[in-house]
Design a protein around this nucleic acid. Structure first.
Lengths: 163, 163
DNA sequence: ATTCGTGCAAAATCTTTGCATTCGA
DNA sequence: TCGAATGCAAAGATTTTGCACGAAT
């Protein structure tokens, strides 16, 4: 994209780390790399990221995976998303317009959409309360067309867990 | 408020339960009762609700507490809120304008605000995708004025857990 | 009478942490 | 060098579940 791949450490992402006294380790680099490779809008859970890491031969531990996700989220480099599934998801925070989510509480399907107004609203409202805004998330929970048509089962519904 | 307290079972809340074949049990009643008694905007975690139950002599089990919270959320009677603290919070869904939240990722303080536009936006966007909207949540994560001024510690920050 | 809901306790998930070692600045 | 970061394994926290009994319709 920018040309020289060795400019990496000059990227704002690494600046954010350095600025606050955090070190740039191989583990943090590869984790950020994985997020960069994801199609825009992809959100990974800690386990998914960990599997991806193992898949490419990395020896990053699960503990470090969690620690890194938390750190990067705190720094505002990742968005921490919660779809009420019992675990969190993370995605790289782009400079572009962030997207928001619609989540089906029956099948967990998520649909993404962009909305400039919501972004601005987050900034404005945060400013109103003197908050330093890291991320604004708009989430719509409901039932998707498919699940409206055919409920999971006739009886007590259940979220998809281990299919 | 309305007059006759025995109209309870005619309330829309109970209608929602019956309508879908769910029974009205003493456990569900007392849990709903507790939520009704909370000041508007209060959000309880499962454990907080459970403590409240025990406090008033109820013998509702923690398992039922969880099951009821999930059921009532699915029915749209409660809002399930996630402030990235590792556990969820619930609040009674009022007919009034729902409020949204600003959360400090450092001290976990939450501030509430209302915004008519956001409510409408949730409905409209959901409709655009043919979703049956149960709840729309706008959350702003950031650092509150106090924490901006005095970071928790000089070193690695940590969320408040068991003070 | 049925069928759903509950309680109990065990289990499953997800995440965090203490400590010794390793590594980045 | 020297504190920050990591790996490992164990612990913690939160939520779910199987089963037998009790309750609501």
């Amino acid at each position: 994209m920018t040309g020289d791949p060795h400019d990496e450490h000059l990227e704002p992402v690494y600046e954010s780390l350095r600025k606050r006294g955090h070190r740039i380790t191989a583990q943090r680099e590869i984790i950020l790399q994985i997020f960069r490779e994801q199609p825009h809008g992809t959100h990974l859970s800690a386990e998914e990221l960990y599997s991806n890491l193992l898949g490419r031969g990395s020896t990053v531990s699960l503990a470090t995976t969690y620690r890194t996700l938390k750190l990067l989220s705190t720094l505002g480099l990742l968005r921490e998303l919660d779809f009420a599934e019992g675990h969190k998801h993370y995605e790289l925070k782009q400079d572009k317009v962030p997207h928001q989510h619609i989540i089906c509480i029956s099948c967990n399907t998520t649909i993404e959409f962009e909305d400039h107004f919501l972004e601005e609203a987050g900034q404005k409202i945060g400013a109103r309360y003197n908050f330093e805004v890291i991320d604004a998330q708009f989430k719509i929970f409901g039932t998707c067309p498919a699940c409206k048509a055919s409920p999971p089962t006739g009886r007590t519904m259940r979220h998809n867990k281990n299919p």
